[in-house]
Design a protein around this nucleic acid. Sequence first.
DNA 1: TTCGTTGCAAATTGTTTGCACCCGC
DNA 2: GCGGGTGCAAACAATTTGCAACGAA
Lengths: 156, 156
Amino acid sequence: MSQPASQRSTGAESFFDDAVEQLRAAGLRVTPQRRAILELFDHRHTHMTPQGIFEALQQQVSSLSLATVYNSLEVFEEIGVLNRVCAKDGQAYFDPNTQPHQHAVCQRCGEIFDIQIPSSKLDGLVQSLCPAAVTNGDFEIDSVDIWLKGLCSNCQ
Amino acid sequence: MSQPASQRSTGAESFFDDAVEQLRAAGLRVTPQRRAILELFDHRHTHMTPQGIFEALQQQVSSLSLATVYNSLEVFEEIGVLNRVCAKDGQAYFDPNTQPHQHAVCQRCGEIFDIQIPSSKLDGLVQSLCPAAVTNGDFEIDSVDIWLKGLCSNCQ
DNA sequence: TTCGTTGCAAATTGTTTGCACCCGC
DNA sequence: GCGGGTGCAAACAATTTGCAACGAA
């Protein structure tokens, strides 16, 4: 199958290049720290916590501050380079996949996986939930967040 | 419509009575503090945070400790009297509805509403998601967590 | 009377903030 | 050089824990 292009409106090649471009477009600076965080997401294309990012980087980036990691992640979220994902463990995970998608969490290892649900299927779901779905009268549904819970292939 | 019975295997009358019965059945003590928390859930049948419960009760229950609230909630969760619900705001909410159900969150006021989705419909959804839904090969789906995001009737 | 529970305060954990110094543009 | 960014340490917020006193069974 053809790999889905993950670029945004800018049309850059990779996640990293695209992110740098969006930083510049927003008038923000491309610092070594931000570069390092983006490169990390470019290599491991997974969901990571601020703490995890910090630990992964403090070896290579001398004197990196956890506060800077938080700061950068917030910036990345604001310009749409990363998505903040709040898992049930109370921690914030950041996701380089900014396309609409859903998640599956392994109940044993805690790893978060992306799920691509065709928007048509999702729309159908929302439609089927709409009528009298919410107990308290009419609730105007804006979006749907689906979390599958179970076991990943490694933990089964 | 007939109101759905919310009792568990014990067959008690109200949420409060049922909860007390389950406490005793588990060999745990029914203290004034635990009673107060259960009564609060019995009156306001909604989702509450530990802090919110504490604030609601410290007026009537002299010298109630926040630690006790946390402690009691953990006990209630363990014996199946309450469900812990982790919302996106990072806070833990506790839900007296222990039947399988889904949630809708108002993006403005933050209130959490229960949604009753027929299990047949939910099964259908899982079925439709199962085949090749998860990017990383086979993921063994155990349960599904659905969060509708939007505006409640009050905030529209 | 006994042992589960409570209250308090201190410890943890995740995240934010204030501020002087630094460096990308 | 300017002004945004960084690092550090302190501040916060949510939650947990240690321990002596307490009280439900």
